[in-house]
């Protein structure tokens, strides 16, 4: 199978070169041959992908890639996702998606459009085929042996359903930008450079944007639920790398809309789409090159020089094509003023590029500042500055780096301005200057946004337990920027909503139809305008989430022993204890049980059957909710031991041996794998029992540990105590916590089960990976998330709990979902809409007849 795979990658390279050669030809029959070669290429890549999947599912560890990223104990779903989890598999996946898109272009566009486009996409494919054949072949086998008996397994961080979909979406997003790029370049090389190529490219750049956005959002969601630091964007170099083409691509989508409407920004659009595609390759280069240290980097990649050469080739190629065609790219109508829709879109474009520059600068600064020349230039400027005696600045002697704070501070004002523009631009006409009724148009959304911002802020305040007065907090820059973001986001939201509402009302009145039908009609009649509104609404929701997230409350690394608590927001979080489990998926989990109890809880109406009728129940001191008072001390102790066994021991230990005659038991851990994988786990279990023995008295219970096996021996003084202990192992636990204090011998403190939520963050240990992974627990709320992660603290029973209350975070996922779904719908409508008449424009022969005028069509 590996040999077949190697042959198929070689054929793939041959076919992609064939597509390039045939695709650049001027003859019509060769164009048809290009389409056939593209089909052959796609099916060969598909066959190669099936080969790799077969090697993965059959655990063929003689293949280096299979041995590096899988092992025999992994669940099938992650074995399949190993296809793109490693560098070599990702190359094959990239080639497959590229060939798939070429096939889709060949199927959905007419012959004239395919000319040049397939060839340019073929160049992109050839690059990845070259990498597979000459540098990083996924079908490479061990040359001297048949491979290890088992593979290395997949990094546990990647064994997450979101990570199963994030890489393919992100890669597909990068690849999909190649379609509008190829259309743009082919229009420059072969056809007219008017708006025709943009009409064809529109659905493709919408698809690319939707996939790219989905990739970023799913990556953010993965970081939020998997990495345990509480956020969704860490400004990691590779994250930033993926953001760069998204920013230029988003700028391109806006300026393309202007060109489609007014034929302006022609050169600008060619530059933007070229930049977007080049930045996609740059982002991939960042992941592979280890240029900047990052969480996402592939280790020991050999591809760095290849990517560098490809980047240089693309940049020089684009500059050459644009340079030779630049004289045909002028002559567009005048802008018509800054306060027009196109003027604001241009301003937005500049802001997007400024953001791109800022993010790139912050990302590459550690690399730049390594260079002596860079340090000399900066130090020269520092000397001049210091000589002016304005303020003293230190010279730099080592590489500089900036952190998330720097990125947040520099990008937030630009983001806020873009948000404001997204609200203002739809109110203005494309070409003419400010209309007379602009203030009337502005008044309603402005008024509504102020009112809704007050409500939003009140909601935000209710989620954050700040004691400081609003008017004191507003003086801090962080809070003020949050308020501004909320105001602008609401403004953008209401501009879109009001326009939608007016159009729907007019449609309902004119066609005498219901609301939903009118909504459908309005959207389908002008999907560009209303699709844009929906996407802007999604963006506004995302910014509301960012504003809310900026005001989150966080408690970091609070050290807690069992039954200790921390307070956050309106809740007390009680650490109930730890338990360990072993999963069939091959890892052991240490689970912290955390009770989320509202601070103001007072209800005492519930009474459980397990509590004898002759005892008294009173409200207990926090965190214990009930205080159960007994008449006899022995009854209290028996009650405590029975429920202690049920609550804390039953899930983790089994009665290995019961000696009723001598009132003794031997306890063994339920899972030996968990004991072996989690350091100190057996001692934790033993310590739990030691504590009980010391509380009840060693004369009542004596404990011994086995010298060789993981066994604990307990001997009881009297029969009822022994019976209570045994009973606990066979009953359903009815409490979450139970405690006995010898200084109050008649009272047992309990936390009843079922009254409040229990959340369970985990730490997972994998047999083949040294570092444990954090599995966060998120209590998702409508207005805020409670986010918990923990690490083991010194001492067998203690944890370090990190907890944060993240207001409005759900709005980010909702807003992103709205944007992506809307853009996918627009792509879908584009695929099935009437084809624009572009044959004459793209066909080489006709262009020759049209001459230079054709380029200005």
């Amino acid at each position: 199978m590996a040999t077949l795979g190697q042959i198929l990658t070689l054929i793939s390279l041959f076919l992609s070169v064939l597509v390039v050669i045939l695709g650049f030809s001027q003859k019509r029959h060769l164009l048809q041959a290009t389409v056939e070669a593209t089909s052959a290429l796609f099916f060969i890549d598909l066959a190669a992908s099936f080969c790799l999947l077969e090697l993965l599912v059959t655990h063929d560890f003689s293949n280096r890639y299979v041995a590096s990223y899988t092992d025999s104990s992994m669940p099938l779903v992650y074995i399949l996702t190993a296809f793109w989890a490693g560098e070599k598999g990702a190359l094959l996946f990239w080639a497959l998606v590229q060939a798939g898109l070429m096939m889709l272009v060949a199927l959905t566009e007419n012959d004239a459009i395919q000319k040049g486009v397939l060839a340019i996409m073929g160049i992109a494919h050839s690059f990845f085929a070259v990498l597979m054949v000459f540098a990083s072949n996924p079908f490479e086998t061990f040359s001297t042996s048949s491979g290890p008996p088992d593979g290395n397994g997949m990094n546990p961080l990647l064994q997450n359903p979101l990570m199963a979909v994030h890489p393919p979406l992100q890669l597909a997003g990068f690849v999909a930008w190649s379609v509008p790029f190829a259309l743009g370049m082919s229009s420059l090389l072969f056809g007219a450079v008017g708006v025709q190529w943009l009409k064809v490219a529109r659905k493709w750049y919408l698809l690319a944007w939707a996939l790219h956005t989905a990739g970023l959002v799913v990556g953010g969601l993965w970081a939020y639920v998997e990495l345990g630091w509480g956020g969704f964007w860490g400004w990691d170099p590779v994250e930033n790398g993926a953001l760069l083409p998204w920013l230029t691509g988003t700028a391109f989508i806006h300026s393309a809309a202007v060109e489609l409407r007014t034929s302006r920004f022609r050169m600008w659009n060619y530059i933007l789409i070229s930049l977007t595609f080049i930045l996609c390759i740059f982002a991939t280069f960042l992941t592979r090159s280890q240029l900047i240290h990052s969480l996402h980097s592939f280790q020991n990649s050999v591809l760095t020089p290849y990517f560098l050469y490809y980047l240089v080739f693309l940049t020089v190629g684009c500059l050459f094509v644009l340079g030779t065609r630049h004289k045909y790219l002028h002559g567009s109508p005048k802008l018509g003023g800054v306060f027009t829709r196109q003027g604001l879109i241009l301003l937005g474009n500049i802001l997007f590029l400024l953001l791109t520059f800022v993010v790139m600068w912050g990302t590459l600064l550690p690399k730049f500042s390594e260079s002596k020349m860079f340090q000399d230039v900066i130090n020269g400027m520092v000397k001049i500055w210091n000589s002016l005696n304005i303020s003293f600045v230190h010279e730099i002697t080592e590489p500089l780096a900036v952190g998330p704070d720097w990125f947040n501070k520099t990008t937030a004002p630009i983001g806020a301005l873009l948000l404001l523009l997204s609200g203002l631009a739809p109110l203005l006409p494309y070409k003419s200057t400010i209309p007379k009724d602009i203030f009337r148009k502005l008044a309603m959304p402005a008024l509504l946004s102020v009112l809704s911002s007050v409500v939003t802020l009140a909601l935000l305040e209710s989620q954050t337990p700040e004691t400081k007065n609003f008017f004191i907090r507003i003086r801090s820059l962080g809070f003020l920027s949050g308020v501004i973001l909320i105001l602008f986001a609401n403004f953008s939201l209401f501009v879109a909503l009001i326009d939608f509402y007016s159009a729907i009302r007019a449609k309902m009145a004119s066609a005498n139809i219901g609301f939903l039908r009118a909504l459908g009609n309005v959207f389908s009649a002008n999907p560009r305008r209303f699709g844009g509104h929906i996407v802007h609404m999604g963006v506004a929701l995302c910014f509301l989430a960012i504003a809310g997230y900026g005001q989150r409350t966080e408690i970091k690394d609070a050290v807690l022993k069992p039954m200790q608590s921390v307070s956050i927001g309106k809740n007390d979080l009680v650490f109930l204890g730890l338990r360990s489990t072993y999963s069939r998926d091959g890892y052991a989990s240490l689970v912290a049980k955390i009770l989320v109890a509202p601070k103001d809880y007072t209800d005492m109406t519930v009474r459980l059957d397990e509590i004898p009728s002759d005892v008294q129940i009173e409200p207990g001191e926090r965190p214990f909710l009930w205080l159960v008072k007994f008449k006899q001390q022995e009854d209290a102790i028996n009650f405590f031991l029975k429920h202690f066994s049920a609550v804390f021991l039953q899930q983790e230990m089994v009665l290995a041996e019961v000696d009723r005659k001598n009132l003794a038991v031997a306890l063994a851990p339920r899972s030996l794998e968990a004991i072996n994988l989690i350091p100190g786990e057996f001692h934790r279990l033993a310590d739990q029992l030691k504590q009980v023995a010391s509380i009840l008295g060693h004369d009542r219970i004596s404990l011994e540990m086995s010298k060789g096996d993981p066994l604990l021996f307990l001997r009881f003084r009297d029969g009822p105590l022994f019976q209570s202990f045994i009973q606990g192992f066979s009953m359903k636990p009815r409490f979450l916590g139970v405690s006995y204090d010898p200084s109050e011998p008649f009272k047992i403190k309990v936390i009843p089960e079922g009254m409040f939520k229990v959340v369970e963050p985990e730490v997972r240990a994998y047999p083949k990976f040294e570092n444990p992974t954090t599995e966060v627990a998120i209590d998702v709320g409508i207005f805020s998330d409670l986010y918990l992660a923990f690490a083991k603290a010194p001492g067998s029973q203690s944890i370090m709990l990190t907890v944060s209350q993240n207001p409005f975070i759900s709005l980010f996922w909702i807003g992103s979902f709205v944007m992506i779904i809307c853009v996918v719908m627009l792509f879908w409508l584009g695929i099935f809409s009437r084809k624009p008449q572009v044959t004459a424009v793209f066909c080489g022969e006709v262009v020759q007849n049209v001459g230079k005028e054709g380029f200005n069509a």
Partner: peptide, 30 residues
């Protein structure tokens, strides 16, 4: 089961690729 499906996939893909390549040759030298 999955292995069989993958093997069928490989066979079908290679057949379709061969067919497309033959058509490509035919069209090129027409």
């Amino acid at each position: 089961m999955l292995e069989i499906l993958l093997e069928i996939g490989i066979a079908v893909s290679i057949s379709l690729a061969t067919l497309a390549f033959v058509r490509c040759i035919v069209r090129t030298f027409r």
